[in-house]
Design a protein around this nucleic acid. Sequence first.
DNA 1: CATTGTCTTATTGTCAACAATATAACCAAA
DNA 2: TTTGGTTATATTGTTGACAATAAGACAATG
Lengths: 226, 226
Amino acid sequence: MNTVTDNRQGTLSDQVFWRIKEDIVTGVTPQGQKMGEAELAKHYDISRGPLREALQKLEAINLVVKAPHAGTHVVTLDAEKMREVYQMREAMEGFATRLATQVMSKNEINNLYRLLDQHEAGINDTGGKVYFQEEGDPDFHYYIFSKCGNVQLVNYLENQLYQLLRMCRHRTSRLPYRAEKALSEHRSIVDAINNRDAEFAEMLMRRHIQSSWKLVESMLSEQNQQ
Amino acid sequence: MNTVTDNRQGTLSDQVFWRIKEDIVTGVTPQGQKMGEAELAKHYDISRGPLREALQKLEAINLVVKAPHAGTHVVTLDAEKMREVYQMREAMEGFATRLATQVMSKNEINNLYRLLDQHEAGINDTGGKVYFQEEGDPDFHYYIFSKCGNVQLVNYLENQLYQLLRMCRHRTSRLPYRAEKALSEHRSIVDAINNRDAEFAEMLMRRHIQSSWKLVESMLSEQNQQ
DNA sequence: CATTGTCTTATTGTCAACAATATAACCAAA
DNA sequence: TTTGGTTATATTGTTGACAATAAGACAATG
């Protein structure tokens, strides 16, 4: 189990790291917020030692930025930074998809198809679309890139990029998300994987990510005009 | 200036981080070495607080691995990990080259040509080939990917991947490096950039990295047979 | 002799006080 | 009024002591 993805227990610094991370990623702690050590330590009822370690871990995954002797602030995701995050994601997750296509077992591919079926079945339930957007879609992506066979790559995607991505998503919630379109793109990707067409699977994944960026981008320019 | 690439001054934890990092990357500290906190703190004449922060920074760039309550060890680069590092490098630096081709200024491209000329002029000096391998080649790669226009990508390549790469290189020093071949590949890459042929530049960069991996790989299998 | 359980010990995790630094508040001079 | 330097204060960086944990030594039992 992974200390970034799930660590509600363990050392104090890990626990507090996890709690602060969730607060940042879900928008409870606003972007640009000053993270005073004394204040936070008091709030989480720990001393400044482990709290500083927690902040350092947050810095390592780019959720906060530290300035020597000046303090640490929650990162501010402007349009340019978000563009960079999606650009990175397109390249790296596309590459991971290519690799996964080459090494996934038949059994794992069947699991993917089952996952698709579940998503399609649940999408018309009450709140099914929101659930798919917030849980199903990330699950799908995670399942694929976690099978790419490159630990370095998986760690980077899971611990760094996807945390920033969740932040982007929250900053642009209420976007005109079309779950049906995303789902059909998912199925095309799995079909390409099933055909062992690595190049095509990578291309489809990249386009899938591009289209979600376009959605986010249009949302951002709308916000700018207001 | 960057806290991973150059930080011989600043806070104690930064200074010691930099010193330990150099020792690990250059092989002074052997792979798998136990990093006892008390011992290290005494050696660098600081207290355990900043030393722990330094170790945490090393963990963030994958040079050491920490186990809760058990201690931290220098990472051990086996053949599989090295394969992953070169695979990541091929994908990410290739992508960075593609981006750089699209946004580099004419002036920056001219700088690249000047760099090539310097390298070609110096390669026949005494120790010129070794100098090119250890300084010139990394400079060339850094100059290109630093111009890709994606801060996230540059940071990852510079602070994480290239540190591990230096470690790989040291582990396989005395490989049959052919500076002339590398240099001509460099020139081809710059030509592709100059022609604004992003796809071709990416391909050439990927092949250039592939061939250096093949060298490392053959070295590793030789070591295995002995 | 092997194995299990306890205890010791070395190491890491945590804490609270102290030192160093940067921000800002303030005053003086132009 | 503005600008420049000086001081005050709040915050971060650092330290050494204390607590908690895990690995190893050792003895007792089958």
